[in-house]
Design a protein around this nucleic acid. Structure first.
Lengths: 214, 214
DNA sequence: CCTTTCAGTGCACAACTGTTCACTGACACG
DNA sequence: CGTGTCAGTGAACAGTTGTGCACTGAAAGG
């Protein structure tokens, strides 16, 4: 395992090399799926794009579905990182500040991981059934996480768990819709879009604040 | 154009016959696209399913995109019919009654036109770019229609048009999410799902009622 | 009645698909 | 140094793909 060499660079170990072409395959899938969907990507296209012969694909994945699941995994890793960032500062400011900050973080992440976001947005609806199911499950998990998070917010102490889930679901579907809009929008429409999204979320919060009082 | 004959049945005119295989092609596309997406459907599969030889496809459509656009058209015809039904009784009852009635109509239509709903839900995200764009445009139209409709509701008289669009967008994205959930749900989950959807919409309306008062 | 139209046919083609199989050769370990 | 592992190769396979072309035959029009 002679990894180091006299010079500046390190010699690539066998495992490193393998990991690199695995990444190349994933990146190829991500890029090729951009038009249409994963189901529209052929093994051979992926292999060519990654710079290997078609049959070498099987050294890394058993099937196209496996590629899809791997992409779902890594997409949600970065998505969870985003959620953690949103949740960070414990103390609540005003609702407006929370919404603003969250939207800023969302926008940033969508830009930085555009390919991943586009991937889950697409494959959630189309895409191999296994992949669809995996994504549905992950989103449900996020929703659940958000619900337990909302329970810690001031003012929701005596809410039923059902109501917490209703609000969580509402927020998730709104954010998903917003993310999709950001993906579809041209840059110059972005500010306008965010302003609308901001008010949408605020309206939801107004609804939540006044819940059970009517 | 000798359409009638002595017996009970009418002789199928040339145009009728053409229309019938056109329908067969559209139905085939609708069914075959169910797994994965329209992009995953081949011209040959469609032709075989419709009972014609592959090359005869070109007598009806210039390309697969044309099929997609035709399906978008007829999907939104039935969707608009649904919206008209929701809107019918001018006088407003309570918000609860409006939501209940609307959800009942939605559920009914999703069941009766399941294939069409599934189609737009899928192709909205995946599907040929032209089709995606067409769907996006149609949904935007619905949103706009809903906004002008909301303007006539009591209590929104002095709302800005922007705010009307915010509420309309919120309602559309919620309903779209609900429709997708209905499509994905097993029948026994349906009642539970509708109860959640009901509260989601009510929460939005509570937010709308209390808008601009805080 | 004869003629035109045109939905549907059948064949051909080159390109592409997933998967098998035996292989090569550079790396890592003993 | 010798040896085994294994990422990547290359040829071959049986299917399927979109599309061009010359055709048939029944319905429609004059």
């Amino acid at each position: 395992m002679c990894t180091k060499i006299a010079g500046v660079t390190e010699v690539e170990s066998r495992a490193d090399r393998k990991e690199r072409t695995r990444r190349a395959l994933l990146d190829a899938a991500l890029e090729l799926a951009e038009e249409s969907s994963l189901t529209g990507v052929s093994l051979r296209q992926m292999a060519k794009e990654a710079g290997i012969v078609p049959t070498a694909f099987y050294r890394h994945f058993g099937s196209l579905d496996d590629v899809g699941l791997a992409l779902v995994d890594e997409s949600f890793v970065s998505l969870r990182a985003m959620l953690r960032e949103v949740r960070r500062p414990g103390a609540a400011d005003g609702a407006g500040e929370i919404v603003d900050r969250s939207l800023r973080i969302l926008l940033d992440h969508v830009h930085r991981h555009r390919a991943h976001f586009a991937f889950i947005a697409r494959e959630r609806a189309a895409g191999p059934p296994v992949v669809r199911e995996a994504i549905r499950h992950e989103i449900e998990l996020c929703e659940h996480e958000l619900a337990t998070d909302l329970a810690r917010l001031p003012g929701t102490q005596q809410w039923s768990t059902d109501d917490l889930h209703v609000l969580a679901g509402l927020l998730v579907s709104t954010v998903v819709a917003t993310a999709e809009e950001i993906l579809a929008a041209r840059p110059e429409q972005e500010t306008r879009l965010l302003a609308t999204a901001r008010r949408r979320l605020l309206m939801v919060f107004v609804g939540a604040f006044n819940w059970r009082s009517s």
